[in-house]
């Protein structure tokens, strides 16, 4: 299986994502922002970082990058897409996911380890988890405070589209939301960084299951 990782100017978790994908047993493929081609990958990760310096608004400029047009087609056709941190912000700006990520409620960047619970696991990126699974995942963001209007929140809650919830909310996000998916369940956005918890040498390997999930979902044994 080939998993692509988009690289925008200012992405800085791209190499970490490529490394985790390799560890999960898939072939990592770099997708340069200025190339429209997705190089025939089977899934795409939009990594964390500060694409375009977070200027204007995190993700606001990246969503217009050349690669995004192809990515939108890929997502709309049901292709598995995962946005992590800045990648989540990019996907909301591109309207592939609802809502927005606001400035953290305490107005400070936060880098820590957040205890989280998997809620809905019927997505390609969570297929190896059970609903209710708890683990601790690294977070590192300035704008992780998930917000959407009441109607949208009610809708994603009713449709079981909250993928991940904080047990201790680090940023003030509504309903402790740490991750959601789209209606088709193929596009997932997570504020925590599973790629940073993908190696027991760093203290936790549980995040690797996110990348193994997409292989398993595709019928490939991790």
């Amino acid at each position: 299986m080939r998993i692509g990782v988009t690289v925008f100017p200012g992405s800085n978790c791209d190499r970490d994502a490529l490394h985790a994908i390799e560890r999960a047993g898939a072939t990592p493929v770099e997708l340069w922002h200025a190339d429209a081609s997705l190089k025939g990958v089977d899934a795409v990760v939009v990594p964390g970082g500060f694409s375009y310096g977070d200027y204007l608004r995190p993700g606001a400029i990246a969503r217009f990058a050349k690669v995004m047009g192809s990515l939108e087609e890929f997502a709309n056709a049901g292709g598995p897409v995962l946005g992590v941190c800045n990648g989540f912000q990019v996907l909301t700006e591109a309207h592939l996911l609802p809502g927005a990520l606001l400035r953290n409620a305490h107005m400070r960047f936060v880098c820590s380890r957040a205890p989280v619970r998997f809620e809905s696991v019927e997505t390609p990126w969570t297929s190896l988890f059970e609903s209710g699974d708890q683990l601790t995942l690294p977070v590192a963001h300035n704008e992780g405070n998930y917000f959407a209007d009441e109607k949208t929140i009610a809708q994603i809650e009713d449709e079981g589209r909250v993928v991940l919830r904080y047990l201790e909310n680090p940023n003030g996000s509504l309903n402790d939301i740490a991750g959601i998916c789209n209606e088709g369940r193929n596009v997932v956005g997570l504020m925590p960084h599973p790629e940073r918890a993908s190696d027991p040498a760093l203290g936790s390997g549980e995040g690797l299951k996110v990348f193994e999930s997409v292989l398993s979902f595709a019928g490939i044994k991790a």
Partner: peptide, 9 residues
């Protein structure tokens, strides 16, 4: 906690 101390894994 205001510094990203894990990027780069």
């Amino acid at each position: 906690e205001q510094y990203d101390h894990q990027v780069g894994t």
